[in-house]
Design a protein around this nucleic acid. Structure first.
Length: 968
RNA sequence: GCAGGAUUAGCUCGAAGGUCGAGCCCGCGAUCGAUAAUCGCGAGGUGUUGGUUCGAUUCCAACAUCCUGCACCA
């Protein structure tokens, strides 16, 4: 082993040779014989200026297409892009998500897969329609739906274009000039095709559902169109007499006159009252007062007694709410039986613990109604008028009816108390009138529809289990959602979307169920887009001879509702994966924010399982939310986010990308200007490491100068082994999408292993050894291989900088023109073929120990520095008192030690004490001799040579080699 | 209220039933041949309260705070 050190140990005969002055030529300029680093690769990145140039270059050369061609025929990796909503500029959440996707696609490409990336946009829907509404103002009412849709389309296209430009600016590679969009005719056609598939399987039905309804504008409102404002309502307590035997609830109540008391702020819903809800686990008490018994929740009894003046009431029984299920009550003024039901949403905050339930006028009430099979049809028309009922209120508008109904209750002796209450209440954001909940007809996809023998719900749950969820808890999360979700309400009373393109018979009103009609619509949409629904008459769309299956009628009218946009994006697996020849179904991966468990992951799953029986993805990964440094979610209203494009223009897109790589995206991630600045510092460090690598390869041509592994110095071999390990880990982490580990690893490797240690040690050899000496070539070989490996490993993340570095590395045969066309370093590629595994393991272990010893030696060196004994460590010589366990190792590498420690000399001694357990001890002394002006080491030989008096024995040897190289 | 997640150094991360660790930041130095660089040394931490254990930051249970989605305000 010791022989390896002789590579750069001076040989005496050379000294003699120079000493005798055989050469007659004048001495060299010693300083000029150094091989100091040189490179055109600039320290300063100027990312904001340079990145756009790269983008332009890539665009011109067709970079994305080249990556596709370079991987043609390789195994596919199908990543499917979730469509962002084409509304507004991109924010940090977009930057996070799209960068991650780019890491995936680029790393898969470099790992050897054919990994296309077709970005897409979600273009229909309420937010855009609302924005367009606002800009059109009153004009909209005069406009035909088709024209409104054109405005919406323009709006969506504008933001699609903006976002596309911004995503490209971040360095994301993809088929940007031909993205997919939910408003493409082809896509729109797939949406209706998918809808018809569901219909033809019998999975779609029309049913009732209470929605926010503005009686002034006579329209359904979306959640987003409702705003809360203070509103004064009546607040009344109403007696519901029990008609079933009270003994069934509690024996003590036998034979008594029993009622419960409900509290409500919407008396107008009482005509629709069908049930009273109790909480199954709450305690209820029976309060006896003046010969009557009233059932209320225990927790609210005191409050109720006060409000409805039951002073002196006594408790005659107590039981859980569950006892009241299926008890019967009388409606206070209608001839109707009221059912006792159980519901978990009953609270003890207000009221009596007995909640009047009108399924047609509340979401909770509706769900409870469904459970108990109560009728949910509405008795209130679009203008908010009662359609039928007692003369006291029939035909009145609901809010006006409040007063009359209260009076009616009073006259029937059912009113226990009444006051006014001011509370927060939903209002229409357009006309600012209070809104109501009203049951309307909507289209649903049944979760219980049979798919291949089991329900859509169960089939979906089964499919979830086959998917790899990253992180793993995603499986539980989406399973819980699918398991408990109600039927999917897919209709919206809107304009900007894809119509539920079905027809009804003019004469009998029944739905036209015809596969031929369906196909005609699908074909029409593929040709002309969904807009044609608004420009064409039914007979232009339907095949001739279309007849109603029920009455034989041949006149039809069109459905006006459109489809929920989640259904649209849920169709992307069909419209994109299936349709694009480059892609295939199912996808290998979806990667979106965690909000998409309820969104795209969910709707894609249902659409795919419902029509294709299987999940559309093999894997689903999620990224967390972006938070500000205080841990608050970033939002437009708080203004606590950052603009990724602004960062790109100030610090560079590379910094945004590096930030994305620096955080664990599976959790919520912090984002701030300060963080970006910090990442920017890390960037500089990594960049400088590369710069140093490049600057030492200016006279290195691998084909001519690279050494084989076994010819290299042990330290260089060791570093190649380490790099090999780093590459292996990084490749693995790309596979598991643990980009933050890559970032940490690369940062640490560059900082600690390379910059702090290896390059510090290597300087002496690279600078002072004869340029063509094996010692220097060994170092250069290692540096080159490390650079060539690192640049590829960081390329998916540092898209711009890796490409900038690429041409500065030595060109060798068959090297691709861009780093993004290259492959990751393969196993064994960096070290070449390690000839001897045992040798490698020994080397690895030896140097791990040597590095630890080096680390130990730094402390006494620093102490010496503090005492002004030395400045540079080359001013020192060191004595290592080694325990027996280390002595042999140190002796073996004796020749290397002074270089490893960057001191002018090392002596190794047995540690005194002799029990073998004495810890390592390092002594520092001022180096004897003088500083060599060439290599800065101290040596007693400096001044002993006549031609080169300022130089040490090592440099003399090097100079001799150099002189022999150069013609006189 | 329901479902899921998170909490480790000032920041970003990592580890593990056995003295926690890395980089950055910060402080103090060195160097002047990576120079708007580079190197060394130092300081600094497991949300709270219980439990299991010889030993808990790790396992368990509560609590607190934050994030996401959903529901609700009769």
């Amino acid at each position: 082993m010791k022989t390896s050190c002789t590579l750069y140990t001076p040989r005496l005969f050379i000294m003699k040779n120079i000493h005798t002055g055989e050469s007659m030529r004048p001495p060299l300029d010693v300083k000029k014989t150094l091989n100091l680093p040189q490179t055109q690769f600039s320290m300063k990145a100027n990312l904001p200026q340079n990145e756009p140039k790269w983008l332009e270059k890539w665009e011109k050369m067709g970079m994305y297409e080249k990556t596709r061609k370079a991987r043609a025929g390789r195994p596919k990796y199908v990543f499917h892009d979730g469509p962002p909503y084409a509304n507004g500029a991109i924010h940090e959440g977009h930057a996070l998500n799209k960068s991650l996707k780019d890491f995936v696609v680029k790393s898969k490409t470099m790992a050897g897969f054919d990994a296309p990336y077709i970005p897409g946009w979600d273009c229909h829907g309420l937010p855009i329609e609302i924005k367009v509404d606002a800009s059109l103002g009153g004009k909209k009412l005069q406009m035909a739906p088709f024209d409104v849709r054109q405005e919406c389309r323009k709006y969506a296209q504008k933001y699609l274009d903006l976002q596309r430009t911004q995503f490209k600016r971040l360095g994301v590679f993809g088929r940007w000039e031909r993205p997919y969009s939910t408003m493409d005719p082809q896509y729109e056609s797939v949406i209706v095709r998918t809808l018809f598939d569901f219909m033809e399987k019998g999975a779609v039905y029309k049913g009732l559902k209470p929605v926010y309804w503005c009686i002034h504008d006579r329209t359904a409102l979306a959640e987003a169109e409702v705003e809360y404002a203070m509103h004064t309502s009546p607040s009344i307590w109403v007696k519901y007499r029990m008609t079933s035997d009270p003994a069934n609830v509690d024996a003590c109540l036998a034979g008594k006159k029993v009622s419960t008391i409900i509290w409500t702020t919407t008396p107008w819903t009482l005509p629709a009252s069908l049930a009273v809800a109790f909480h199954p686990e709450l305690d209820y008490v029976a309060l006896e007062h003046e010969g009557e018994v009233y059932i209320v929740a225990d927790a609210l009894a005191k409050q109720a007694i006060e409000k409805i003046k039951l002073t002196g009431a006594t408790e005659s029984a107590r039981f859980p709410g569950s006892k009241l299920e299926y008890s019967k009550f009388a409606h206070p003024f209608l001839d109707r039986e009221i059912l006792g039901v159980l519901a978990n949403y009953v609270t003890t905050e207000q009221g009596t613990g007995a909640v009047h339930t009108a399924p047609s006028h509340g979401a909770d009430d509706f769900n409870t109604g469904m459970k108990y099979r109560l009728d949910a049809s509405s008795n209130v028309d679009a203008a908010g008028k009662f359609i039928q009922g007692l003369p006291e209120y029939k035909g009145k508008r609901v809010f006006d009816g409040n007063f009359d109904i209260v009076e009616l209750l009073r006259s029937r002796g059912a009113l226990m108390g009444s006051e006014k209450i001011e509370h927060s209440y939903p209002h229409c954001w357009r006309c600012h009138n209070p809104v109501i909940f009203r049951a309307t007809e909507q289209w649903f996809i049944s979760m219980e529809a049979p798919i291949e023998g089991v329900t859509l719900r169960q089939r979906s749950l089964d499919e979830i289990k086959k998917v790899k969820w990253i992180p793993a808890w995603g499986e539980e999360r989406i399973s819980n959602m699918i398991a408990t979700r109600p039927d999917w309400c897919i209709s919206r009373q809107r304009i900007w979307g894809v119509p539920i393109a079905v027809f009804f018979c003019e004469s009998c009103g029944k739905l036209l169920e015809s596969k031929e009609a369906h196909q005609a619509v699908v074909d029409l949409f593929a040709r002309e887009g969904a807009d044609s629904w608004y420009t064409r008459a039914p007979h232009e769309i339907l095949p001739p001879e279309t007849k109603c299956a029920h009455c034989g009628g041949n006149q039809f009218h069109k459905e006006n509702d459109i489809i929920d946009v989640w259904f649209e994006s849920g169709c992307s697996q069909a419209a994109v994966l299936e349709h694009e020849p480059e892609l295939s179904w199912p996808a290998d991966l979806y990667l979106e924010g965690g909000d998409q468990y309820r969104g795209w992951f969910h709707s894609s799953l249902l659409c795919a399982v419902g029509t294709r029986e299987h999940a559309p993805y093999r894997g689903v990964a999620t990224n967390g939310w972006t938070l500000d440094p205080q841990g608050r979610a970033t939002s437009k209203s708080l203004g606590n986010g950052i603009d990724p494009v602004e960062i790109a223009n100030r610090l560079g897109a590379e910094i945004v990308r590096l930030w994305v790589a620096s955080v664990d995206f599976q959790q919520d991630v912090t984002v701030s200007q300060e963080l970006m600045d910090k990442v920017s510092e890390i960037y500089k460090k990594i960049r400088n490491t590369f710069k140093y690598i490049l600057s030492n390869l200016y006279d290195f041509q691998p084909e001519l100068h690279a050494l084989n592994f076994e010819e290299m110095l042990p330290l260089d071999q060791y570093m190649l082994l380490r790099t090999e390990e780093v590459a292996e880990r990084v490749r693995k982490w790309y596979e598991s999408f643990e980009f933050h580990r890559i970032y940490q690893q690369i940062n640490e490797f560059c900082t600690v292993d390379l910059s702090n240690i290896y390059f510090a040690v290597l300087k002496d050899r690279l600078y002072t050894a004869a340029p063509k000496s094996p010692a220097r070539r060994s170092a250069q070989t290692a540096v080159w291989r490390i650079g060539e490996a690192l640049v590829r490993l960081v390329a998916p993340i540092m898209t711009f900088t890796s490409e900038e570095i690429w041409p500065f590395l030595p060109q060798i045969l068959d090297r691709p023109e861009s780093v993004h066309l290259a492959y990751f370093p393969q196993a064994g590629e960096i070290t070449g073929k390690v000839p001897n595994l045992i040798y490698a393991q020994t080397l690895r272990a030896d140097f791990d120990s040597l590095m630890a010893i080096r680390d130990e030696a730094m402390k006494p060196l620093e102490a010496a520095r503090k005492e002004k004994l030395i400045g540079s460590s080359l001013e020192a010589v060191v004595t290592i008192h080694a325990p027996d366990s280390l002595y042999k190792l140190l002796e073996r590498y004796q020749g290397e030690l002074r270089y490893l420690l960057t001191v002018s000399g090392v002596e190794v001694k047995h540690a005194s004490g002799g029990n073998g357990k004495t810890p390592l001890h390092v002594e520092v002394a001022k180096a004897p001799g003088q500083k060599c002006e060439r290599c800065w080491n101290y040596s007693v030989h400096v001044g002993t040579n006549e031609r080169y008096p300022a130089v040490c024995e090592r440099c003399l040897a090097a100079l001799e080699e150099i002189e022999q190289e150069q013609p006189a």
